[in-house]
């Protein structure tokens, strides 16, 4: 023990006198956001592997744009700059994973501006935004519908410079989701769908790796099971009961793995700021997302329903939390109370 003891009375001039608790968890907003990034990475890296270096470039631009816009707008609004909490980086990565690798490189910048400046900071910053920034930006980017829906064929790795795509590079025919919308099962096998050997957005193709990320978040207690299970469960039940092709089981599995459903259920719908806090609220929210997704997929103009479903449910979060308010410890049910009073 080589500790050099202070002489008694050598207390600091001023001690901190603050209210309890005096110890805190080492978890922070930053550590939570880094966990989300870690969970997203496998699926994103798979996207880069499938669609080429350009997917990486889109991701870097998107993340950098989100971080820079956050710092700029916070400077401008004279708020403390909080990019070190990594929440802007999460938004950036999610945004990149929700566009195709073939988008023009200015699009992630525009998306980042919409996500960070309009949806997040103008509503008060982290925790205060009403809708999910990455999803809102994605829907905003659908203003350029053809760019957003030019999906790269799986394994056609495009270089960072290729801006125009030849026919060979683009998904032959339609994405699995589009064929499902047309009432036929896709050409891709269920195995391809599960691993992610299909066309689509950069980060949404590999169901396996997205689910793996979800498991990581569950283990790290970043999210709870309520929303993903309620969401995916609802979609599973509805597509199984009301299939649009004869084989309802494979139709259900294709529907679950096609498009952005899994990334939406695991990463988008569970976004803290825009999802309910209570377990019951979370289940209702997940079911709502599932129902709207299926309705849009069956009857809507767009093939993809998950983004819109989550955005719509985002707006109901406040009411869902009131609905899901837990029963207070020791509270007596009103009827019982009346009886006791009588």
């Amino acid at each position: 023990m080589n500790k050099k003891p202070n002489k008694m009375g050598e207390m600091p001039e001023l001690l901190t006198v603050s209210p309890s608790p005096h110890i805190k968890t080492s978890d922070s907003t930053r550590s939570v956001m880094i966990d989300v990034l870690i969970a997203l990475l496998p699926a994103y890296i798979w996207g880069v592997f499938m669609f080429g270096i350009r997917a990486l470039v889109v991701g870097v631009i998107s993340v950098a744009a989100c971080v820079i816009f956050e710092a700029l707008v916070q400077k401008l609004l004279k708020r403390p700059v909080t990019v070190s909490d990594c929440s802007a980086a999460v938004t950036g990565l999610l945004l990149a994973m929700n566009v195709t690798a073939a988008v023009p490189l200015w699009m992630p910048v525009v998306g980042a501006f919409f996500a960070i400046v309009v949806v997040k900071q103008l509503f008060g910053g982290i925790g205060k935004n009403i809708v999910n920034p990455a999803l809102a930006a994605r829907v905003f980017l659908f203003s350029w519908a053809s760019e957003m829906t030019t999906y790269v064929a799986p394994g056609n790795r495009i270089s960072s410079l290729a801006v125009t795509l030849g026919d060979a590079d683009v998904v032959a025919g339609a994405t699995p989701l589009a064929s499902l919308g047309g009432g036929t099962l896709p050409e891709a096998t269920l195995g391809d769908m599960f691993i992610g050997n299909i066309g689509g957005c950069i980060g949404e193709v590999s169901s396996l790796l997205l689910l793996l990320g979800g498991v990581y978040l569950l283990v790290r207690r970043v999210i709870t099971w309520h929303i993903p299970v309620a969401y995916l469960g609802t979609v599973a039940v509805l597509t199984y009961l009301f299939p649009q092709v004869t084989n309802s089981l494979s139709f259900m599995l294709y529907e679950l793995m096609a498009g952005g459903l899994i990334i939406a259920a695991v990463f988008m719908a569970t976004d803290y700021a825009t999802s309910p806090l209570t377990p019951i609220g979370r289940i209702i929210y997940g079911v709502g997302c599932g129902v709207i997704t299926v309705l849009i997929r069956y009857f809507g103009g767009y093939a993809e329903g998950a983004s819109f479903a989550v955005l719509i449910m985002n707006l109901l979060v406040w009411y869902l939390d009131i609905l899901g308010m837990p029963k207070r410890f020791g509270a007596v049910k009103k009827k019982k109370q009346k009886k006791a009073d009588a």
Partner: peptide, 8 residues
């Protein structure tokens, strides 16, 4: 960073 509820 400043203390803020992230609604976890």
């Amino acid at each position: 960073t400043p203390a803020v509820c992230i609604r976890c």
